[in-house]
Amino acid sequence: MSAQKIRNIHRDLGYFYLGLIISFALSGIMMNHREHWHPEKFTIEAKDIEVALPAENEITEDYAKQLAKDLHIEEKLKRQMVRKGKFRMQFDNTEVELDVKTGKGEIVQFVNTPLISQTMRLHKNTSNWWIYYSDIFGLSLIIIAVTGAMMIKYGKHTFKQRGWKLTAVGLLFPILFLLFLS
């Protein structure tokens, strides 16, 4: 394949996917830190509550729906769970978290953060058409990387002279992470 053809493929795929690359990169950074910061939603109100909870084995979906009514939450219950001593209920724009032993907790009402929540939804979307589009995007990123490595044919900055060393070092980080940190 000619150098010009390689450059053209690299350039055109780069232009075509520029918006998606930036979107995935930014939302990926935000998702990496979602345990410490919730960029997807903006809290409108948080208030402390205390509820007399039944025994843990009696906390069912029906109980959660009734509790939501008692707490004047009119949204549809998305999920409820008891885990690590906490009873959690999630709705579209409200979350309730209560300590199972004490019944103390809080209700948090929020709205989705414009643009950020939609961008982060790209990472979570599992519809068939998006999965196929994401697969094509992934393959295109591989092509962009390979054509980028092949673009410089002469001199001391070619893949053969220098690029393979940087690639090897770059591959070490995910390999070390998989071996030692996960």
Rank of each mutant, 00 (worst) to 15 (best):
T60L: 03
L77K: 03
T60F: 00
N125L: 15
I9S: 07
S134Y: 07
L18A: 12
H10N: 05
M151K: 10
D48F: 08
I144H: 04
T113M: 04
N125E: 13
R34D: 12
H123F: 08
Y15L: 10
E45A: 14
A52W: 09
N8I: 09
V146M: 08
N112F: 14
Q109V: 08
S134V: 13
K104C: 06
G103N: 06
K124E: 15
Q118Y: 12
I9N: 00
H10L: 03
T119V: 15
E56M: 03
E35L: 13
G105S: 08
Y17Q: 01
S127C: 13
I107A: 09
F91W: 01
N93E: 05
T119I: 15
I59Y: 07
A68H: 00
N57E: 10
Q90W: 09
L20S: 00
F24R: 05
F24E: 03
D48N: 15
R88S: 11
Q109F: 03
Q118M: 13
D92I: 09
T102D: 00
L141I: 08
K104R: 12
S27A: 11
M150C: 10
T113W: 02
V51G: 07
A149N: 10
K47T: 08
V111C: 10
D12E: 13
K104T: 08
Y63K: 05
L139V: 13
I131E: 04
S117W: 10
V82E: 08
Q118A: 13
L26K: 10
G138T: 04
E74Q: 10
I136P: 04
M31F: 15
S23Q: 12
M120G: 06
L141N: 00
L122I: 15
V111P: 09
K153M: 01
F110P: 07
T126D: 15
L77N: 02
L141Q: 05
K65N: 10
G19R: 07
P39L: 14
E75F: 05
N125P: 09
T60P: 01
I107M: 04
D12S: 12
R11M: 02
N125K: 11
D70W: 01
Y154V: 14
W129C: 12
E61S: 12
K153L: 01
T60N: 03
A52R: 13
G105L: 02
R7N: 08
Q109C: 05
K84D: 12
W129G: 12
K124N: 09
F16L: 13
E58M: 03
E35M: 11
M120R: 02
L141H: 02
G148N: 03
L20R: 00
A52S: 14
T147S: 11
F137A: 00
L67E: 03
R7L: 07
K101M: 04
P54G: 04
I131D: 05
H38V: 12
I44S: 11
N125V: 15
K153Y: 03
D12L: 15
D70T: 07
A25G: 09
V82W: 00
S117I: 12
